[in-house]
Structure formats: structure tokens, C-alpha cells
Design a protein around this nucleic acid. Structure first.
Lengths: 233, 233
DNA sequence: AATGCATATATTTTGTAAATTATTTTTTAT
DNA sequence: ATAAAAAATAATTTACAAAATATATGCATT
């Protein structure tokens, strides 16, 4: 009877309260609303959202399982601060999964399970990235960049691979840093060329070419990520 | 079946109740105590363990996040029934991660970060697998088999890779089937040879050889897994 | 007087029980 | 036989209680 008294905005359609809290918090973390290493107090969050502690706790544990935040026994939840080694490790696995995806995409192209026109979406993404970089906020730029890789992963047609890749991305959201615009612009150029090489590898169904362009791209991307991390300190 | 008391306190030092319940349940699932697709009722489990529902729910959600079981909104928790496609997908990612690990292990051997004697542990595991297969229960056999691959993953020195590999293994525990002893014996022979080839690839620091022996092994292993699945229906 | 240890207190996490909400099944009426 | 309504079942959430940890305070010792 006292139902619907709370005002936890946005699509709470058939979702549980814990789920709503989870997606809200994930959004806040991605937007960098919390400082790195900041502790998240269930009680405060509960008060902020106008719900009790249980669903908040549920959400926090879920986020910890997904790698968004870190949970220490009896010592609460903290926003992850990835170390250089962790970033290297994530990039290493990322490379492995992207190689796996490409191998699969090429296989599917060859056996006709995947329409070659699907690759046009990659072209579109690559071009969208090259223009309009100035009036985009950090989150959008990162999202656009991420979409390119996520799309390739999706084309592999392996949901388990996709979910693994996603959870990998979550592990570093706390470490993504706002780079200066000048830095960004030169990066976009390189990234554009590298992405183009990756698309070509897929389109020509040439795994060797795909393999080497992915490795080049990942290596450069790792360098940038490590540089960003060092800048923050 | 016996509604006897489960001693959760055993060695529960520093662990929370939810954690104890989680590991107990994980053990039960691995041992095949639950039927495939069986629904897990929090209330029943709580009664069985003599605790309240909250820690049980916590454990179930944790297990769902790890891929042990499946959770459907408002419809409870179920033991996963992997489909043939899911098994294929898992094996595909498994292969990718094992290739990544091997590449890293060889790199570490070359740069001297990993002692070549570490590989002796793989020899030991391989030999242990070949003998004493008759008086081992299913779980032990699977564990021994799994250890071989897990050890290689560990040698890569990438905790994130290791945790991904682990969660991948969880995704199929519900689908592991008790094979007949005769079937098993012939399998062990093949597996032994394949594992030997994999070790050789690493020891010779020959990635191409490692790559092809892993692919051969995974392909054969996938065939067996799919055959097991088909046997059950 | 300063430092280290021990105890006490306050804060936070974890666990319980009960209430609420959603879903499924059964019953009843058309 | 079908559809609607009510009851039963089970998941979710809340509020409250307990357990555990960190922090602060005080006393003793050097």
C-alpha cells in the first residue's frame, strides 16, 4: 500500500530495486563521480537513493563481482585504483580476446555465417571517431572508441566471449583519465589508422594481417593508458 | 537427503556466513548433488544449513555472478544446463586464454622471469593423471585434469587472466558428466600424449608448436565434452 | 614528557525475522 | 472450457539486532 513512495528514477521496469541501484551506481562510477579509491558507504548510498541497505549491498556486491569496485572483508567497498601492472594484465587479456574474436569473424565470413556488409558498421564507427572530437565529453569519446572493439567482439557471435570482454572493460573504468585535448587529437589520428588496418584485415579475411594490426594497436593503446596513469598521480 | 546438521563453522576463520554457504554450495554443485536445471530454494537451503535466508541469498547471487548457477528475475536460482553451443563458446574462449598464457610463459622463460624448473610441475601432473585412474572419483579426475591447464595459466603471472579462466571453468561445472570407466581410460591416454606435446612446446620455447598442440587438444576435448552432453540428453 | 599497550566506544558490516510484493496455481463463475 | 479472481507460494525488501573492527582515550612504563 505504501508502494512506489521512493523516487529512484529511470527505467525501473520490472527490475528489482537492487538492479536499479546497481545500474545507477555503475553510471556514477563511469562518469567519474567518485574519487579513485573512495570508500562507498552502503548507508549513505541507501539514504541518497531513498531505499534500505539490503538492495544497496546487493548492488555493491554485484559491482564488485563485475570488477567495477573492490570489496575487502569487513573493510567496505572501494572504487578500484588500477595499478600499472593491472592495466598491463588487462590489456594482455584484451588482446587475446580480440584475436579470438577476429579469428572467429574471419571464419564466419568464410563459411557465410556473417554478412560481409556487417563490417560497414566498423567503417562508420571509425569515421565517426575521426570527426567531432572537439565537442564531445570524455565519456562519449571513450564510449565511441570502445564501441569499435565491442562491435568486432559481437560479430564473433560468442556471448560468453562478449561477456568476458565486457567484464574486462569494467576492471579499468576507475582508471580512465581525462587527457588533454591536444593529446587526444594526435591519439585519434593514430587510432583511426590502426582501426582501419584492423578492418582491412577482417575484410580481406587475412588473419595474419589482423593479428599483427591488433597487436600494434593494443601495444600503442597500452602505452597511452600507462602514460595517462602516470600523469594522474 | 539426510536432514542432518551441516557444520559450517569448520575452518570458518575470518569468513562470513555467506562465504561459508557459498563454498559449501559450490562443492555440492561440483559433486553433482543437484540435478541439472534443478531449482534452488533459498528457504530450503537456509533450513538445511541452519542459517537465515540473507546469507544464503548472498551466496546464491555470488554463485550466479561466478557462472555456477543461473538467476532469473523473481523466478529463483537454477543449476545451469549448458547447451552444446555454450560449451563450444566456452571452449573457444578457453583456447584463446590458454594460447595467451603459453605466449606469456614462453616470453617469461626467454627473459628469465620464470624458472624453467617450474615446468617440472606440469610433468608431475601429467604423470599423476596417467596412473591411478581407477580408484579416483569423478571429481578428483576432473580436478587433476583441470590442474594441468590451471597451472599453465598461473605460470603466465597474470592474475586477471587467471580469474577469467576460473570463471570460465565455473560456467560448465553443471554440464560435466560422469563418463564410463572404459571411455575414460582411452581418453586419459590421448590426453596424456596431448599434454606432453603442450609441455614440450613450452619447454622448447616454441610458440608455433605450443599453439598447434593446444588447438589439437582443445578440439579433441570439445568433441568429448559434446559427446558427454549428447549421452545425457 | 613521550611512547606503547590495553580497554572502551563508536562506526560499520553482517545476520535475523517479519512484512511486502510479485508470480503461479487453483477455484469459481460465466 | 475459458477467464477472472482469490489463495498459496516464494522472492524481495525493510527494519532491527548482533558481531566485528577501527579509533580514541587513558594508564603505565621508560
Amino acid at each position: 500500500m505504501t508502494a512506489g513512495a521512493f523516487s529512484l528514477e529511470s527505467g525501473a521496469l520490472g527490475k528489482t530495486l537492487g538492479e536499479s541501484v546497481r545500474s545507477h551506481l555503475a553510471g556514477l562510477i563511469i562518469r567519474g563521480e567518485f574519487k579513485e579509491g573512495e570508500r562507498l558507504y552502503p548507508e549513505q548510498i541507501a539514504a541518497r537513493f531513498g531505499v534500505s541497505i539490503t538492495p544497496v549491498r546487493e548492488a555493491l556486491m554485484q559491482l564488485a563481482a563485475e570488477g567495477f569496485i573492490e570489496s575487502v572483508q569487513r573493510r567496505g567497498f572501494h572504487v578500484r585504483i588500477p595499478t600499472a601492472d593491472q592495466i598491463r594484465n588487462v590489456w594482455q587479456v584484451r588482446q587475446s580476446l580480440e584475436l579470438c574474436a577476429g579469428e572467429q569473424v574471419i571464419k564466419r565470413l568464410k563459411e557465410g555465417t556473417l554478412d560481409p556488409h556487417a563490417l560497414d558498421r566498423l567503417d562508420a564507427l571509425q569515421k565517426a571517431q575521426l570527426k567531432n572530437t572537439s565537442h564531445m565529453d570524455h565519456a562519449t569519446k571513450l564510449e565511441l572508441n570502445g564501441s569499435f572493439h565491442t562491435t568486432i567482439i559481437e560479430f564473433a557471435g560468442n556471448p560468453i566471449l562478449a561477456s568476458m570482454y565486457r567484464s574486462l572493460q569494467h576492471k579499468v573504468v576507475g582508471g580512465l583519465v581525462q587527457s588533454g585535448l591536444d593529446t587526444w587529437r594526435s591519439r585519434v589520428e593514430k587510432e583511426g589508422q590502426e582501426h582501419k588496418a584492423i578492418i582491412d584485415g577482417l575484410r580481406n579475411q587475412d588473419y595474419a594481417a589482423y593479428d599483427s594490426s591488433v597487436r600494434t594497436h593494443i601495444a600503442r593503446s597500452l602505452d597511452d593508458a600507462l602514460r595517462d596513469l602516470a600523469t594522474r598521480q
